[in-house]
């Protein structure tokens, strides 16, 4: 199996792992956003809680969620390894930092954005996931259609009413947006999937996607803080 480890630990191999895990997480975010938008439904949290319950009790989703954690971890660990190696490739830095017309701010600051997102994920999991799954902290129950389930909606609502928490969420989502704006199209480049016809399409879709995800996730705490629902 040496050729597999050798391939995956090579410079291009590591980038491919970054790309694949990244693309998986990109898909995950779509599903996650779709679910979360139910927080804005004006039904006292019924549909959101029902959705959360369904997700927590679907064996397929369970498997996927463990995969998800693993991929986040892998993405972060390889990201750190790459960053360390990249720093070592230039031991003496420049007096004047590089100016070029092409590369975006996001593309040059992926590690920084990644760290912000990682911190966010930890805080996010401690705030919600840990409460539901590990029983850390207080969480109430509601009965919907005769089934007793966690009242996650209230947990979220309480959290977002705190300006510090919702502010932190909004800032983190902006970081996520930047991270995705480069990450989406970069993944295709790393996988060698470029084409004169489709690469511009990937770029446009990637940009749109990052706007939508950033806006979609950020608007929820803002609206909930303001008490607006639909």
């Amino acid at each position: 199996m040496s050729w597999i480890t050798q391939t995956l630990s090579s410079s291009i191999g590591k980038k491919v792992l970054m790309a694949l895990t990244g693309l998986f997480l990109i898909l995950f975010l779509v599903v996650h956003l779709a679910g979360n938008l139910q927080l804005l439904v004006d039904d006292g949290g019924q549909s959101f809680n029902a959705y959360a319950y369904k997700m927590a009790h679907n064996p397929f989703i369970k498997v996927v969620s463990y995969g998800n954690f693993f991929f986040i971890l892998l993405h972060a660990v390889i990201g750190i390894v790459l960053t360390i190696k990249n720093k070592a490739a230039r031991k003496v830095g420049y007096h004047v930092s590089t100016k070029d017309s092409e590369s975006t701010w996001a593309s040059k600051n992926m590690p920084l954005l990644g760290v912000i997102i990682l911190v966010f994920i930890v805080v996010h999991l401690m705030g919600f996931w840990a409460k539901a799954k590990l029983g850390i902290g207080e969480i109430g129950f509601v009965i919907i259609d005769g089934v007793e389930m966690h009242d996650l909606y209230t947990v979220v609502k309480t959290a977002y009413e705190n300006i510090l928490i919702s502010g932190f969420y909004v800032i983190s989502m902006i970081a996520l947006g930047f991270h995705l704006s480069h990450g989406f199209q970069s993944a295709f480049q790393s996988l060698g999937l470029n084409h004169k016809k489709y690469t511009p399409l990937f770029k446009t879709v990637g940009t749109l996607y990052s706007y939508i995800v950033c806006f979609g996730f950020a608007i929820i705490p803002i609206l909930m803080y303001l008490g607006i629902s639909f």
Binding site: S10, K15, L82, T98, D100, E102, S107
Partner: peptide, 19 residues
């Protein structure tokens, strides 16, 4: 393999090289 052995960094697709 040789490129890596020489101690160059990894590509993060910023596009600065081409620019």
């Amino acid at each position: 393999a040789q490129m890596e052995e020489e101690g160059f960094g990894n590509c993060t697709n910023t596009g600065a090289c081409s620019a």
